[in-house]
Every structure is written in C-alpha cells, then in structure tokens.
C-alpha cells in the first residue's frame, strides 16, 4: 500500500499503528483531521497522536475500523469486545465520533 493511502495512529504509550486511510476514516474525527483544509500537522505528516488513548484500546479501535468496513460491505460477523474494555472503548468512540 502506498504511503499516501495509510495513516499512522500513535497511542498514549507511543505504540504506532499503521492502517489504511479508508479504515481510519470510519472515525468522523479522524476523517476531519485528514481532510480539513488549511494543512494541520496531521494532514501534513499523515500521523495522529492520541495522548489519551491507551495502546490496548487503540488496537481494539483499529480492529473495529476494519471490521466496520467489512460489515458495511455485507460481511455480517460479530465484533467481540472484552467486558473490561467496554467503558474506555465507549469513551474513545465518543471522542472519535465513530
């Protein structure tokens, strides 16, 4: 995949997740970050740092992005969420507008 088509998401602990832009844009917030005119730092460098999202959650989020893409394309599977992650995941979802 070309570099322009990917985006790097960085967690609070500094872990980097490189995922396709298409998947990342499942989040309305990330979509805005990448498309807003005027050239914010995120658009320029193609990476977003989330100082308030832990690695575990960010990983789960990335998984969700890809699942969501597939789901919208008609592949109806279940998305498993561990109960202990639920709360933080929901807060992140609110933040990311997913």
């Amino acid at each position: 995949m070309k570099k322009e088509d990917t985006v790097k998401l960085i967690s609070a602990e500094g872990f980097e997740f490189v995922i396709s832009k298409e998947a990342a844009m499942v989040s309305q917030t990330i979509r805005n970050m990448l498309t807003s005119p005027g050239g914010f730092a995120e658009t320029e460098h193609g990476e977003v740092t989330f100082p308030e999202i832990s690695t575990t959650i960010l990983e789960k989020i990335c998984q969700y992005f890809y699942w969501s893409l597939q789901y919208s394309r008609g592949k109806e599977t279940d998305f498993h969420i561990e109960p202990e992650l639920t709360l933080e995941l929901m807060m992140a979802a609110n933040y990311l507008h997913t």
């Binding site: 970050m33 005027g38 050239g39 730092a41 320029e44 977003v48 740092t49 933040y95």
Partner: peptide
C-alpha cells in the same frame, strides 16, 4: 493562526481534544 494562514504547525488532534 488560522485567520493568519498559519495553521500548518497546529495539531488538529490537540485542538480537537482541548475543545472536546
């Protein structure tokens, strides 16, 4: 900064998070 065409140094995530 935005009105002064000087936005390229800003971090969207940071601003968004602050507003949030």
């Amino acid at each position: 900064e935005i009105y002064n065409h000087n936005a390229s140094g800003l971090s969207f995530e940071e601003l968004y998070r602050n507003a949030y």
